[in-house]
Design a protein around this nucleic acid. Sequence first.
DNA 1: AACAGATTCAACCGCGTCCCA
DNA 2: ATGGGACGCGGTTGAATCTGT
Length: 357
Amino acid sequence: MGRSPCCEKIGLKKGPWTPEEDQKLLAYIEEHGHGSWRALPSKAGLQRCGKSCRLRWTNYLRPDIKRGKFSLQEEQTIIQLHALLGNRWSAIATHLPKRTDNEIKNYWNTHLKKRLAKMGIDPVTHKAINGTLNNTAGDKSAKVTASLSHMAQWESARLEAEARLARESKMRIAASTPSKLHAQSTSPPASTPSPCFDVLNAWQSAKIDLESPTSTLTFAGSNASMLPFSTTTALELSESNSNVWQQRSDELEGEESEWKFVSKQQLQGMHGKETEEHFIGCEESWFPGTVNIGAGFTGMLLDGSNMHDTSECWDESSNGQDEQRSQVSEDAENKNYWNGIFSMVNSEQPPLQPPLL
DNA sequence: AACAGATTCAACCGCGTCCCA
DNA sequence: ATGGGACGCGGTTGAATCTGT
């Protein structure tokens, strides 16, 4: 019920937008706001249906859209959230500032899904495809995945609800004046970047020692809570395994290769602790030449046990001591991990976006 | 240079949900 | 409680572009 009449039924234009149409739509929304999408086209002098205008605005013309390549962290976040939420693109987009659900969906379908498949990971279930991974990783994967799957099922529903709340809150915020916004005691100071829930930050807050005095990484952004982390794992890897890293780096080219590099670590059971950047205002600031380990959530699903050992990175054989330790602490770590994520979800305001004009 | 196949991504389609009278 | 309008979401399409032969 309630379906809008299609464009062709009322003789409206379809297909690609012309610069003139874009200009009309932009000018109208800048002056009046979009208001009712249904009423907008005639008011703006466009021979389009409201739906088409809304899509054009939300997916392309909106000023707060970041276009261009996805950063490594964005890719990781997408994968992680997809593992939790499935094809809930709008919910995933809630956690990727300046990216649209459509863009994320396209990127998933054209890039990430294929890469995961190539790596032997089922992009739907985020589980290892039988026989495509080495035994160690595969065994761990099955074990850990089984132990986490019920949690994921429960909590994905919860995250969905959180995403919904975030959307609603965003709408309220968009309707509020800046002064009202500022008056809300739970809101962050207007002068600081809006907090953006990031599952990686949650991960870090739950599991990672933030101190990394020897870090060589530099990052944009000033909010300490959003600072990325150069972890001991990353350092150990970049130092003790620098030769190997160099060798591997030589073999790999470009961002995609680096992504593969990270993924291989995950598959081999080596989980570094993420280095991280906050997306807002510092995209592309990660260091191509520095090990940027994003074990991340898919990694957790594949192998949620160890976060300590870096020597396994390029060793085909796993470290038995670490494995034992991992098993002992597995449950506790999983619990900490999930608790960290969901306490972060609960404590964070939804990502704020500039109010629509 | 020309063609074919593959890839990308903006845009469309149709359904579900929300809201209001 | 119900029906209809409006909007948002996820899946799909197809033109444009890229890549390989």
